[in-house]
Each structure stands twice: as structure tokens, then as C-alpha cells.
Design a protein around this nucleic acid. Structure first.
Lengths: 208, 208
DNA sequence: AGGATCAGTGAACGTGTGTTCACCAAAGCA
DNA sequence: TGCTTTGGTGAACACACGTTCACTGATCCT
């Protein structure tokens, strides 16, 4: 529990991080499940056996990666919520933010989007759990919106799932987007904006 | 172009089909990208080298699998459209059908849902193309609905994407569903119904 | 009947894989 | 200073993989 760090601990943390980053890059290129321990070690500039000083298996590395990615995403969303403009024009802003954020953290989003459904059992499980947390968190925010405040908690949860689901789908599209195509980017952003507006329109007439 | 079939052609078609089925099963268990040529051959009851009498590579087998799966799905939807009840209560019926259909063709849906985003480049591409076709087909149907008939074609396309996207997401959930849990099944079906209803509610107030 | 065709065989190859082990040298600590 | 701890090394292993090749025997065609 000491704050003083050994040079040893520091160096260890550094190669651990290098392993995670290497795995993230390789996952973006070919998917996590297709990424081997040896490839990760090689890209991190380390001999395969050294891998075991940090993780017991690729599965464990995968879990650590999920944690790191969702840490990044959470921090990002916290920042966005601090911005006062966001709360005023939730829809327009979140469409904007979504595309921008995905572009700037492409590797993280790509990892989550891909391995959410495609990858190894344990990694998939972890991502689904984190996304469920997201849904619950968003539900709390949504419950305070006009038209929604009187809804049953089940209905709020339902619409929260609808939003997160769409966010993930849009993120997938941005990730899959070829490099340097601002037209496509604008198209996705506009599509996301309209979808959210359409959903929100239904709010005022909703009865469970 | 002859309808007369050799015993040879017939047997060839039979093992080809066995290879496809074996690959589909293995994909459900561990994902297509993690499935090796040798595993497929072994499960089909054939020596690895025999694989090459039918496909040049696993990628080609993957493409054939995409075709076969979407063939199944299209046939299923065609049947559903013939049922007169479906057209009257589109929403309730399609939620019902969705869950039922996924249960009965679990392997096909699982393959499409997983490999749509997780798998090999060429398989991913093929699935995305087929899903785009689905979106366009559904757009034609939607364009005839009240409230929508005057929308711009872009808006119709947008809402069609929203529906297909949700269909895929719900299918994923059913696929991931543990065996023998009718309560979860009902929950997913009810969720799907509500989500669609909410989206449809927005239709009458939509302005582009 | 008899030669041509061809789906399927079985063995072999080179390569990449996960995992192990004894070993080393630098950092930590007494 | 000298002993211990430890992150990283390099060689070795057994194994699964994709791919090749000459082959076999049943089916097809004339």
C-alpha cells in the first residue's frame, strides 16, 4: 500500500502496459481471438515466456484489456457530462460526441464492439456485464427527462437498452469506416441524430 | 443444365453439405474464425485433404455458409409474410416470430450475428452486404405504412436500418440465451415488442 | 467391356502455437 | 557488502495447423 515505487515495479508496469497495448493493436488488425500469445509478446518486444510474469493466460490479458477500455470510455463520458452544452442539447451533442469519441479511441471501441459478440467466452461475458452497467447508468439519467419521469422502471430500462444498443451499433459503423472519408462520417452522425430524435418523439405518447 | 443427377454428383453434394453443417456447428461452439479446416473435415467424417475437392479455402466455405444461412432466413421471412395475421398486427407478430424463428434456426442466426462483426474480413463483408439488402427490402415494405408514405426515401431507409439493427441485436440476445429458460425468452420478446412500439409511436410526429 | 474421371485417402512437410525449464543479471534489501 | 528476489532470456517439447502428393477404387461414359 506504499506510494513509493521501486524502479522494478515501474518497469514491470511498463512492460505490462506494452503487452496490453500490443494486444489491443493486434486485436484491431485481426481480432482478439485470432491473436496469439507469441504475437503479443513479440510486438511488446519481449520473449514469449516473459508473458507469464504478467498474465496466466490470454484470457486473463483479455479481461484486463476490457477493464482498461471501459475505463477509457467511462472517463470520456464523465468529461462529456461536465460540458454544460451537452445537457441542453442531449441528442445533437451525443451524436457529435459519439462519432468524435469513437474516432479518437478507435482501438478501444473496436475491441469492445468486436469482442462483445465474436471473441472468447470469458471476454464476451465481461464486456456484456460492463455494457449492462452502462445501460443501468444511462437509465438513471433518462429517468429525469420530461415525459419519462413517470414511466415504470422497466420501461426506462427498456429505452436505455435501446439507446445503448444503438450507440454500440453506430460505434461499430464508425470503426468499420475506411480512413479519411469525412462524407461517410457526416452521414453516420446524421443518421444517429435522426434515429435518436425518432425514438425521443415516441416518449410523450408512450403508455406502458 | 440437366436435371438428371449422377450418383457421383449426389454424393459430392452430400459431403459438401456435411462440410457446411460441420462448419456451422463448430462456429456456434467456438466461432468461425477459430474453426480450423481440419476440425471441419474431421466432423464431416472426411480426411483434411478431401476438403479441397469442395472449397479452395475456409474463406470460400465461409461465403457459402453466409449464402446458405441467408437463404434460410429469407425463406422464413417469406413464409411469415404469407400469414395474413402478420400484416394486421405487424409489431406483436414480428416480435413473436423473431424469437420463435431464432430459436428454430439458432445456428444460422448465431453464425450471422457473430461473424457479422467478429470474423474474417471476407465473411464480414458478405454478411454486411446481405444485411444491407435486408434493410432495402424492409424499406420498401415500410414505405407503404400510414404516416410514413410521405417521408423522404432517406428517412425511410434510416428507420429501416433502425429496425434491422434492433432485430439483429434481439437475435443476438436469443442466441446467447441459456437453454430452457422460457422466462428469459418471454422477457426478450416483450422487450422487443415495446421497443418497436416506441419507435412506431414517433412516426406520426416525424418531420425530416 | 474397358478406359477416363474424380471424390476421398493417408502420409509427409514446414510452420506457428502454448508451455516448461534452468539460467542470468540487475534491483532490492539486510 | 553480500544474499535474495525477480523480470526477462533462450532453448526445447509436443502438438495442431494448412497444404502437397501419389494413390485407390467406385462411378461414368462410350
Amino acid at each position: 500500500m506504499s506510494d513509493v515505487v521501486n524502479a522494478r515495479q515501474l518497469q514491470k508496469e511498463r512492460t505490462r502496459s506494452a503487452l496490453l497495448t500490443a494486444a489491443l493493436e493486434l486485436s484491431q488488425e485481426q481480432g482478439f481471438a485470432q491473436t496469439s500469445l507469441r504475437q503479443v509478446a513479440k510486438r511488446a518486444g519481449v520473449v514469449p515466456a516473459a508473458f507469464y510474469r504478467h498474465f496466466d493466460s490470454m484470457d486473463e490479458l483479455g479481461l484486463a484489456l476490457v477493464e482498461r477500455c471501459f475505463g477509457t470510455l467511462r472517463a470520456m463520458i464523465r468529461d462529456a457530462q461536465r460540458d454544460p452544452e451537452v445537457f441542453d442539447h442531449i441528442i445533437d451533442a451525443s451524436a457529435e460526441i459519439l462519432v468524435e469519441a469513437v474516432k479518437n479511441n478507435k482501438a478501444d471501441f473496436a475491441f469492445v464492439a468486436r469482442e462483445r459478440v465474436g471473441g472468447s467466452e470469458v471476454v464476451r461475458e465481461a464486456i456484456r456485464h460492463e455494457l449492462d452497467l452502462f445501460v443501468s447508468e444511462l437509465a438513471v439519467v433518462l429517468a429525469r427527462l420530461p415525459n419519462i419521469e413517470r414511466w415504470s422502471s422497466e420501461d426506462v430500462h427498456m429505452v436505455s437498452r435501446l439507446f445503448v444498443r444503438n450507440m454500440v451499433a453506430n460505434a461499430e459503423e464508425v470503426v468499420e469506416m475506411p480512413e479519411g472519408r469525412p462524407d461517410l462520417e457526416a452521414q453516420i452522425r446524421e443518421g444517429a441524430r435522426r434515429q435518436m430524435r425518432l425514438i425521443v418523439l415516441g416518449f410523450k405518447d408512450w403508455r406502458s
